[in-house]
């Protein structure tokens, strides 16, 4: 069984890793990062919890069908491409606008981000579905 140190540290680490993965996701379009790396990092964080606390304990807290995430991600990513077609451009044509958001200020909103979000969800869903279904097997 895992030690108290491992439990405490992984509990403290979980939000940090997830936040970092989201920041990687949102930086992905013109800086190092992206949906794949962020998704792998998120999956690592959750699988760390699975390893440290055990599958049953985590499932009692929060039971999730990760394959749904996969489907949503695939849908978001491909609909981003279709979305460009609705504006009269080619599939997956990316465009960016500068918008002023509340709290954040002037931000560059780029359509690639939505594609990245789709990839992020696909990677999370795929990896965690594998972890979970293999881990359940006795």
């Amino acid at each position: 069984m895992t030690t108290l140190i491992a439990r405490t540290v992984s509990k403290a680490c979980l939000p940090i890793i997830i936040l970092f993965s989201v920041s990687l996701l949102l930086a992905g379009h013109d800086n190092p990062g992206g949906g794949f790396i962020g998704g792998v990092m998120f999956a690592t964080a959750v699988s760390l919890m699975y390893v440290v606390f055990g599958l049953n304990y985590i499932e009692a807290l929060y039971n999730n069908n990760w394959d749904k995430w996969f489907g949503i991600g695939l849908l978001v990513a491909s609909l981003t491409g279709i979305g460009a077609m609705l504006f009269g451009y080619n599939f997956l044509r990316s465009m960016s606008i500068y918008a002023t958001l509340p709290l954040v200020g002037s931000t560059k909103i780029i359509s690639t981000t939505f594609f990245d979000i789709g990839v992020y969800l696909v990677v999370i869903g795929g990896l965690l579905y594998i972890f979970k279904s293999m881990g359940e097997d006795k």
Partner: peptide
């Protein structure tokens, strides 16, 4: 390379599960 890495991640995961 990034594309190839992503694809090899998927195939490796599939392959290991298949071995199991």
């Amino acid at each position: 390379t990034l594309t190839a890495i992503v694809i090899s991640l998927a195939t490796t995961a599939f392959l290991l599960i298949l071995c199991y």
